[in-house]
Amino acid sequence: MSPLAGFLIVAALLFSIGLAGALTRRNAILVLIGIELMLNAANLNLIAFWRYGPHPEALTGMMFAIFSIAVAAAEAAVGLGLVIQIHRHAHTTDIDAMNRMKG
């Protein structure tokens, strides 16, 4: 197995673990953790393709990963702010209990 295939398999496993977490956990914060893991798996793919691709000096994959990290940070801040607000409003972070949008 080539090194790139190893990294891609690890990224696929990480993505699946994150997806399983996002789909199976009750707590909204744990769902966000799963989404963060999925974003990180995508970053690992980008960096791995940058490292083993034909033109690393163009920095394309590296730049994509850096911007992806910045966007993920913004997503985490807004997502966790929303979870805190929902907890203040509904006194729960259980996603199964959030079954209506009207307050």
Partner: peptide, 29 residues
């Protein structure tokens, strides 16, 4: 949770199949 686990396993199966089947075409600088 069972449906979520099944979906995640299916996604990993597809991704792993795609990577292993295209291993010969991957760049390796």
């Amino acid at each position: 949770w069972l449906a979520g686990l099944a979906i995640a396993a299916a996604v990993f199966a597809v991704l792993g199949w795609a990577v292993l089947n295209s291993a010969w075409a991957l760049p390796h600088e």
